[in-house]
């Protein structure tokens, strides 16, 4: 598939003449964003969701489920817990650790929209 060169697409289809290193607005603050957009367009793809984001989802969802199951057992203690060291309630704190870790990954590696 043919992809219009970055200069045409960023200027609404009209070719724009610029000197080397000049940004569309000429403002240095936008240099980085412009460069990223151009790289993205040159590659012909939108940025890919990071693997770390998927890992964040996995840890957060699993952590929430495990912590939820643990809290349920704290509120409704079973007659026979079935595990040793039940009094430590490992599923509550281990689930919480996974949940927080997952949230951190989800926020840090959340997919971002490019202009």
């Amino acid at each position: 598939m043919w992809v219009a060169p970055p200069s045409r697409r960023l200027s609404g289809g009209r070719p724009v003449r610029r000197t080397e290193g000049e940004t569309p607005s000429g403002q240095p603050a936008k240099c980085r964003r412009y460069g990223r957009t151009v790289r993205s367009l040159k590659a012909g793809v939108h940025s890919m969701i990071s693997i770390w984001f998927f890992i964040g989802i996995s840890l957060a969802v699993n952590g929430a489920l495990i912590m939820g199951a643990g809290i349920y057992q704290v509120v409704n203690p079973p007659a026979d817990p079935g595990v040793v060291l039940f009094h430590l309630h490992a599923n509550v704190w281990w689930g919480a650790v996974l949940f927080v870790l997952g949230l951190i990954y989800c926020v840090k590696f959340a997919p971002k929209r490019h202009a």
Partner: peptide, 15 residues
Amino acid sequence: LARYCGPGLLGLGIT
């Protein structure tokens, strides 16, 4: 796994 892991943790271990 069965010795220490209750509901949820066991599922994660098997997963």
